[in-house]
Computed example of a mutant assay.
Amino acid sequence: MTVRGIRGAITVAANEETAILEATERLMRNMIEANGINTEDIASVIITVTRDLDAAFPARGVRAIPGFDLVPLMCSNEIPVPGSLEKCIRIMMLVNTEKSLREIRHIFLEGAVVLRPDLSSRLT
């Protein structure tokens, strides 16, 4: 097995606890489903938010998914680059897998599709 990174991002409409938690859970569930991930194979998850999102820790949204009680999660802020996408949650999930780089499916939802349209188009 090899450790591979699986990326994902989603935007939310407002800096509200429910919006942040639901979006993070939705993104993670999509990443897991698209890649056939078993939580036992997850080494760790890094979640970042843009500085305009501070109403909740997005890791709480991931913890709502069964099997994530022991997975190491860490939240952080994105670098505040002028003109960058706002109200964005990003996930980097490190997993043990037999999949090649080309087989990994990165997930970009809502307004975050603009971050990597080249990868988003591979999902169809």
Rank of each mutant, 00 (worst) to 15 (best):
A59Y: 00
I107E: 06
H106P: 02
V12W: 11
R122L: 11
P82A: 12
G36R: 02
V49E: 04
C75M: 12
L94T: 09
L27W: 03
F108S: 03
V95S: 12
I46G: 07
P80Y: 13
T48V: 02
R60M: 13
A59R: 02
A112N: 05
P66S: 15
T124I: 15
P66N: 13
N38F: 04
N77C: 06
I65R: 06
G111Y: 04
T39R: 04
M74H: 12
G36V: 01
C88P: 00
R63L: 15
V62G: 02
R90C: 06
A55G: 12
V81T: 15
I79H: 08
E17S: 15
A59C: 10
D52C: 05
R26L: 10
I65Y: 08
V12C: 12
V71P: 01
R90K: 13
P82W: 07
I37N: 02
I32A: 00
D54W: 08
F68R: 07
E25N: 08
R116L: 06
V71I: 15
G61N: 07
E22M: 09
E17N: 12
T11G: 08
L85D: 03
R51V: 06
M31Y: 06
S120R: 15
T97R: 05
R51H: 12
N96Y: 15
R60A: 13
E98K: 14
R102V: 00
E86A: 15
E78I: 00
P82T: 11
V71W: 04
R4Y: 07
S76G: 10
R63C: 00
R63V: 07
N15V: 09
I47E: 02
R63D: 00
V45R: 06
E22A: 13
R116K: 15
T11F: 08
I79G: 01
F57S: 11
R122C: 03
L21S: 04
C88D: 01
M31K: 05
D52P: 04
R90Y: 01
I107W: 05
T97V: 07
E110Q: 11
A55C: 12
S76N: 08
A14Y: 09
I107T: 11
A23Q: 04
R60Q: 14
T18R: 14
D52G: 03
E78A: 14
C75I: 07
E103P: 03
A43E: 09
V95F: 10
L53E: 02
P80W: 11
G36S: 03
D69Q: 12
D69T: 10
D41Q: 10
V12R: 08
E17K: 15
